[in-house]
């Protein structure tokens, strides 16, 4: 942060840019104000400082500026952080374990190597493939070493719950019913879509999703952990 006083019009523009970034639906289309501000952020060091400083004050951090717009991550204590209550409110402990496992599974499946974090190519995932990938990895997750309460122990527990769930239960109308792992993966994908971290790729068939730059940057920002590392190792063996 510099001690130079910022121009008020600059501050206003910075706030406007953060506003665009917070509204997930906003897209920096050519000729639009969002695009102009985004380009300014990319090219003008001083403006960038103002935006970053303002974001910091709001409890936000700028993770990156892909073409789809400014990607922000919240300070866990700040007003923008997602609380568990913002997820589906009827989740019990097992649901949460599975949700976390699927999230990690998708991340590991899409970005096995560090180079993937810098590759702007959009990854495609399918519900059934993710389920298969996680199922194949359950053994490895089950053998992670870690004491009671550690992340590794939670991963073991999550793997256990996942292993005990059936792959598919259908409702009377033929859709996937809650309580099976395919539905769990579908739910997480749906949630990612809500977050702007994925989009449905309906033109490539049902159950197919693109992971957006937002998701890539979110995962790249992660410090990893036993479960994520183990799954990424496994995935690297799949794709040399």
């Amino acid at each position: 942060m510099t001690s130079v006083a910022a121009d008020l019009t600059e501050v206003r523009a910075a706030a406007e840019l953060l506003g665009f970034a917070l509204a997930r639906r906003a897209r920096p289309v050519e000729g639009g104000q969002y695009r102009a501000l985004l380009d300014r952020y990319r090219s003008e060091l001083r403006f960038r400082d103002v935006v970053d400083t303002m974001a910091e004050g709001l409890g936000l951090e700028v993770l990156g500026t892909p073409r789809s717009g400014l990607v922000l991550a919240p300070d866990p204590a700040g007003p923008f952080a997602t609380r568990l209550g913002d997820l589906r409110s009827t989740m019990d402990a097992d649901d949460r374990l599975v949700f976390g496992l699927v999230l990690i599974g998708i991340a590991a499946y899409a970005y096995p190597t560090d180079a993937d974090f810098d590759d702007p190519e959009t990854k495609l995932v399918e519900v059934a493939t993710i389920d298969g990938f996680i199922r194949a990895a359950l053994g490895t997750l089950g053998s992670l070493a870690g004491v009671e309460g550690s992340a590794e122990e939670r991963a073991r527990a999550a793997a256990q719950v996942y292993a005990d769930l059936p792959q598919l239960i259908t409702t009377q109308t033929g859709r996937r019913a809650r309580g099976c792992t395919l539905k769990a993966v579908e739910d997480v994908c749906g949630w990612l879509v809500e977050q702007g971290a994925a989009r449905e790729a309906a033109s490539l068939g049902p159950d197919t999703f693109h992971l957006t730059d937002r998701f890539r940057l979110l995962v790249a920002d992660s410090a990893g952990g036993g479960a994520l590392d183990a799954l990424r190792d496994l995935r690297r063996e799949d794709v040399p």
């Binding site: 997930r24 949460r96 999230l103 971290a197 995962v219 992660s222």
Partner: peptide, 19 residues
Amino acid sequence: SVPRLVRFDDLVDALWAPP
């Protein structure tokens, strides 16, 4: 209304918090 954003690690930690 405050839009909620996520951070990967925090979300996984919260989901996997021990009972």
